[in-house]
Structures are given as C-alpha cells and as structure tokens.
Design a protein around this nucleic acid. Structure first.
Length: 481
RNA sequence: GCCCUCAUGGUCAAGCGGUUAAGACGUCGCCCUCUCACGGCGGAAUCUAGGGUUCGAGUCCCUAUGGGGGUACCA
C-alpha cells in the first residue's frame, strides 16, 4: 500500500504572516490535498527573543481566512502531538543523547573564546572537531564535573551526501564543506535544525516543503536521519518571492503581509490565487482559479526554480476579476462597508453606488476615493470644461449648464430614462449636441475631471436637490469668469 | 573566501533538440462612449555573454557574468 503523504507548515509566530511564508504553506497544503494526504500545522516558537504575542492566533486567522485547513495542529490533535515546539522540549535532549550513543553525535566542551579563535580571515569559522574524539572516560568525567557542553553532529568525513529535490533535482554536497554543527545548545534546548529533523520524523512527515534557504543544508539534515537509521523524507524546496531583483520580500516590506492586503480591500481568494501563481504555473496556463481548482491542477512539474518578483499590479487585476465575476448582490454585500465609510452620514442610495463601483474598482479600498465627489464640491478649475473631441470649452459649457439647469429645475421624473430624455430634448431644442450638454453637466455637478459614471448617473446618485444646487453654483462660476 | 543554486519581454511565465519563441499583467494605439471604467480589436517588447556538442540549441555540456541562499549555541 502506498504510504499516506503527510506535509506540514511550520511557521514561527514572530508577527504577521507574510506572503512568501503563506505561499510555502499553501503549496504544502495543495500538495497534501492533491495526493489525498494530511496537512499538519506545527508552531515553531523556540525563538523566544522574536516571539510576538498574538502571533499564533494570527496564524490561525490567516490560514482560516485563506481557506487553508489543516488536519492536525495545536488545536486539532491527530496523535502526533504536541504540535507546538516549546511543548516538545523534553524530546530533543533525549534524542540528542540517543544519537551520541549511536555514534552520530558527540559532546563538546569548547567555550566561546576558543570558538572565536577559529575564525578565518573572512570572519567565517568552522569548528575544528576538537572534541570529536574525546575518550568516553574524559567525557564522563567532565560531564559529572558539571562542565557546560553542547552536543554536536558527527558528520561523516569526506563523503558526498546527496538527495533528489522534487524541484531542483539532484543536490550533492561534500561533507568536507559541512561542519559538525550544534544539535543541542548549552542551555539544553535544540537548535532549529535538530528540532526540525526530530519533529518531522516523529510526526511522520513524508514530504518536507520549505524555502530554498534550506536547499544546501538539507544534506546535513539527511545525515542525521541516516545516523538515526530513519527514513529520509522527500524534499520540495521553493524559490523565494522577491520585492525586486535583489531583495527578498521581507517583513520589513510593510505591505507584504496578508492582513494588510485584506485591509486594503483585497479578497482572500484573490490573494491566495495570485500567490499560488508566483512560482508555479498550471499545465493549461489558467490564471483565475478557485482553491479546489488549484488543488486539482497542482503539480510539482510546474514549480519554477527561479525566484519571482511580487507584482501587486497583477494581483490588483486578479482581484478585479474576482470582483467583476460576482453578482450585483454579492458585490453590494462586500462593498457596503466601504461605501458607508466613504459616504459617512450623508444619505445616498448605496445600491446605486455599488453598481457604479462594480466595474470600476480592482480592490475595495479604491471605493472611497472614487466616491469623494459625493461630499466634496466647491471651487474647481473651469479648464475642466475643455474637451476638444466634444468641441466644448467653458464658453460653450456656460450655455450647456444653463440648458441643463432650466430643463431639470422643475422636473420631477428623477429616473434614468426620465432625466436622460429630458436632457436630450433640451439639448435638441437649444441646438446643442446632447453629448455636449451631458459632458458639461457632469463636470458641473461633480467638479471632477473623472467620475464613476456619466452625467445622468451622477445626477441620479446626487438626487435632485443637490444636482440643482450644484448646477446653479457652477453656472454662477461660469458666468463670473 | 568556500559550498549550494538560479538566469526567456518591465513583471508573472509556456517551452523539455527542429515553434513565425505561447498566454497573462502592465504599457501603447484604435473601436465603443457624456469623463472614467467595462467590453472588443490591434501594436511594441524577451532567450545574460562566450565557447563547445549536434545537420540543427532558448532547450544539452563548460566557463564567465549577474542574482539568490548557506557557511551561527538564528530560524
């Protein structure tokens, strides 16, 4: 029987979840789901210095919002727990000692000063294996004398350690380039590397999916698996997501985290969809895909080896596609809070506003700016009336605005057809083109060069009273020039 | 320094020894049109460089260059 695939996502709770991190989790999730396996969440919180309060909750919230569900985790026991690293602390020492017994590691009593002295001209130091061959007796003696120690990995000398990465292919490193790294620190806690290997093994992880920063150190981890006599997992290393050609997306790049994008008015599905495409391409080149479609299409083959640059412009577009594919009702529901926020106390028809916004925004955060004309009207530049193609300028506009004002002042059928027809007739009667009148009217009642809709739409949204008031004010401005 | 690794338009990318080198975003132009947007149509723009291998190389090999990562009692 084929083994059940188990992948894990192991974030450190050091703040918000950034996009690169989330993508790693997403791929691990997709791979597990695609292959009918299990996806496990493990919290790696051993770095007490960088630990941030509330960050674990943030991980839960982000995954839930992104639609990434896990089968096992801190709050979902699957029999391989605990799933929080600090709760597993007792395990590592035991395994480190066991490894010493098995000959894969050794006690080291070298102090900081000695280690410092090992640095070469580049400030890089490589441990000289000073304690590697201490006699059993000496180790016992020093241990019982209470000397501080660490446990180091006993890396086999001069062999080539290699493995087959699922995206990068064969990776091989000569052990001469691998130092006898610390597995257990002098405070009795494991180093990340060691904790990772032990946890992955104990949790039955079959496929380790993580960033390329571990690509070249994986042979070292494999040697630990070997020393324990454990089966090595499969590895899938993912290239980084960059901010630009030379800089990785980092937590310092403020907007690169999930929550901020949500706050800017992005849809979680769109973010997930976009990041899925950063570094992976489905066989059929589809772009807009639901989570279910991503799961079905996901394949290791389509994963790229080179890093990719995060392009918010494209994510905006994708988000816009999601918005546009919504029904009027759906869009209204999610846009309402943003519209309310833009409109404030003023009384406008939010459904109409939602309709106007639907095809005009890529992200919900664009709404307030697009609706600013509702509550803001005052002196504007009369040059706005210049439009060559419409054959119009302020002089022509004066007549046009007057025509519109007269036509609408006593008019009560304030509907799209009603107002439109009225303006059309009035234009005709005055010998002007209806386009000219509408153009001028639109500017006259908004004071904006660009508006989310034409004169009629603006008039309907502003309602009669405000429309007339603005027409009068604009006419006065035009007459005074 | 040493080790690992990557390299197709501005960006994401397809390509798997023979292609007019896809597609998408962006950009530019046109159409639609009361501005904008939506929608439709069209254009410009890419194989880092040099050596091999081969009848033939974006595709395979080597070198250089550039980028990323590692080289910690960080993760």
């Amino acid at each position: 029987m084929k083994e059940t695939i188990r992948t894990r996502f192991a974030p450190s709770p050091t703040g918000f979840m950034h996009i690169g991190n989330l993508r790693t989790g997403l791929y691990a999730y997709l791979f597990a789901r695609k292959n009918g396996g299990k996806f496990i969440l493990r919290i790696e919180d051993t770095d007490r210095e960088r630990k941030v309060d509330g960050a674990v909750e943030m991980v839960y919230r982000t995954l839930a919002s992104a639609g990434i569900t896990y089968d096992e985790g801190p709050d979902k026991d699957g029999g391989y727990g605990p799933y929080i690293q600090t709760e597993r602390m007792h395990i590592y020492k035991e395994y480190a000692e066991k490894l010493v017994e098995m000959g894969g590691a050794y006690y080291c009593f070298c102090d900081k000063e000695r280690l410092e002295g090992l640095k070469d001209e580049n400030g890089v130091h490589t441990y000289d294996k000073h304690c590697r061959n201490l006699s059993k007796e000496e180790v016992e003696r020093r241990l019982s004398a209470g000397e501080p120690y660490v446990i180091r990995q006993k890396v086999p000398e001069n062999i080539v350690s290699e493995y087959e990465d699922m995206v990068f292919g064969k990776i091989s490193v000569n052990t001469a380039d691998i130092e006898d790294g610390v597995l257990l620190k002098s405070d009795g806690l494991p180093t990340y590397n060691f904790a990772n290997v032990v946890d992955d093994h104990l949790m039955g992880i079959t496929h380790v999916i993580r960033g390329t920063e571990y690509l070249s150190s994986t042979p070292k981890y494999n040697l630990i698996y070997d020393a324990f006599g454990w089966e090595r997992p499969h590895y899938m290393h993912l290239p980084p997501i960059m901010k630009d050609a030379t800089r990785k997306l980092s937590k310092r790049f403020g907007d690169a985290n999930f929550e901020d994008f949500i706050a800017k008015g992005y849809l979680p599905e769109a973010i997930v969809n976009y990041i899925a495409l950063l570094g992976w391409c489905p066989k059929d080149n589809r772009e807009k895909m639901s989570m279910q479609e991503l799961i079905e299409a996901f394949d290791t083959d389509g994963i790229s080896k080179s890093s990719s640059i995060f392009d918010e412009t494209k994510m905006r577009w994708l988000n816009g596609e999601y918005l546009k594919s919504m029904s009027e009702e759906e869009f209204y529901t999610i846009a309402l809070p943003w519209i309310k926020n833009a409109v404030g106390e003023a009384d406008f028809d939010e459904r109409e506003l939602a309709k106007l916004m639907h095809t005009r925004v890529d992200i919900l955060g664009d709404i307030p700016e697009k609706l600013s004309f509702l509550n803001k009207f005052g002196n504007y530049d009369l040059a706005l009336y210049n439009h060559q193609k419409m054959k119009i300028d302020a002089e022509v506009a004066k007549r046009a605005v007057e025509v519109a004002l007269i036509a609408l002042k006593g008019f009560d059928n304030w509907t799209e057809d009603g107002v439109k027809e009225r303006i059309r007739r009035a234009a005709e009667e005055s010998g002007m083109k209806s386009g000219q009148v509408m153009f001028a009217m639109r500017v006259a009642i908004t004071g904006e060069p660009v508006t989310p809709g034409g004169a009629i739409e603006m008039a309907l949204v502003l309602k009669k009273g405000e429309t007339i008031r603005r027409l009068e004010q604009s006419l006065a401005m035009l007459q005074q020039r």
